[in-house]
Amino acid sequence: MTLFLETLIGGLLAGTMYSLVAIGFVLIYKASGVFNFAQGSILLFSALLFVTLLEAGIPFALALIPTIAAIAIMAVLIEWWVLRPLTNRSAMTLFMATLGLSYVVEGVAQGAMGANVHALDIGIPDLPIFVGDLLISQFDLVAAITAIALVAILALIFDRTRIGISLRAVADDTRAALSVGINLNRIWQIVWTVAGITGLVAGLLWGARQGVQFSLSLVVLKALPVLIIGGFTSIFGAIIGGLIVGASENLAEAYIGPYIGGGITSWFAYFLALLFLFIRPTGIFGERTIQRV
């Protein structure tokens, strides 16, 4: 029984880490209709930059400023060179463009900052807490709290600030937003920056957990099933999706894994997503789309 509870709790907490990454995707998808495959590379880039600054001796809080500035600059460049020329193209074309973009960002990040593994200490020791006989990872707990805090902050931004409302308008109906006078390009830049900052937070947490290096960008492959289950357009859905994926993945590995050789976490989440696609194609919290001829 303890094993089941432990695996469940561990899985749920790990799932919040997936949600953190997925939130960045949702933001961009809501505002620009693009599934941004480059989110993983941007995550890697920002985490690497931050760690390099830290290692150069700049204190933690100060190092955040140039990193966020770099993210903003990158968002502007992406909007200029990738999004604007590809306006009105199909979603698949945009996706493939972000595929190319991920290669560019990865190449630049690793070329400029090296391929070494960097340790990242954000002040949370990765030691277990024991509740009775139950092992809970302290780090994962903090990550979960961060994810919730992030969602709360984002919710506040979307509800209360002018920019947030503009974002929601753009997500709802792009043409109507344009007709009201909202600067679409500016909004895209802002969304990509916010998504990049979300990615930075996720990157820092993932990096602290397992070292900042190249494989960090592979975390995007886990975000896909999360988004399919939770829906592409809902942040809350991203959280729920992450929880479901995290829990089921770990439980499956613990209980089904030993019978078929182990290591099924690489594809289990995808098959789960496939199942959801048959039952509820747009995800639990996604919007239904109607295809017209």
Binding site: G10, Q210, S215, L218, E249, N250, E253, A254, G257, T265
Partner: peptide, 10 residues
Amino acid sequence: PGNEQSPQWR
């Protein structure tokens, strides 16, 4: 490449 090993160490 082994960047996520929670199931194994669990």
